[in-house]
Nucleic acid binder design. Sequence first.
DNA 1: CCCTTGATCAACCGATGTGTTGAATATAGG
DNA 2: CCTATATTCAACACATCGGTTGATCAAGGG
Lengths: 112, 112
Amino acid sequence: MAVDDEQLDRAFTALGDPVRRAMIARLSRGPATVNELAEPFPITKQAVSRHIQVLEAAGLISRTRDGQRRPCHLEPTVLEALTSWIDEYRLETERRFRRMDELLRTVQEQEK
Amino acid sequence: MAVDDEQLDRAFTALGDPVRRAMIARLSRGPATVNELAEPFPITKQAVSRHIQVLEAAGLISRTRDGQRRPCHLEPTVLEALTSWIDEYRLETERRFRRMDELLRTVQEQEK
DNA sequence: CCCTTGATCAACCGATGTGTTGAATATAGG
DNA sequence: CCTATATTCAACACATCGGTTGATCAAGGG
């Protein structure tokens, strides 16, 4: 579960592309081959193949073998690491906002 | 709260850089100016200024004015949209995994 | 054993990203 | 008013990204 800084780099940038995000969405419903993943997009299979390599290098998907096919499987672990990273700072910020509100209300109380 | 596809592009790629992630971490503890944000990094203020512009364009931070300073504030809204996006597909995948386990166990049961 | 299919590799191209330096702008403050 | 400080703009260099085409590799099926 140890996701280092470079892993976060790769995972976040991997998700910063609409084609790759659509692939993630597709794979959440089940495994798919390169050809299946390529179908919705007006780009070459080679380009799709490289998007897949990016997702794999980011640890977001894994691949198995089925004859001449190489099905892709979504790996939820790194996705969870991303939400953990985000939530740490989002929640800290929201806590800070609440403390500010609290303080503001206290000051207003004393001004009366 | 409507975060479109291009907004997701900008936000995810913005987080795909270690400098910008460190800035987010810093800003979760409170507002900071360009100079304060630049301090930990061995790069020029101009480079920092542009990282900040990237974060702002992604909707991850906002900026106010305090004299000649332009303090940055972390905006949790888009962060939350990112976790929502991720969790949708992560949870779907985990549900699917559980159904698979269930099915596998049923088959094994019948083989006895 | 060929030939088709699935997938990848290699080389190339244009666009974008990230850094630099140097100049410019704006506000603070004596 | 003049100068220092905070920030940004402009132009440039270099690397990476995302796409292409053409060749190659690997597995299956007649």
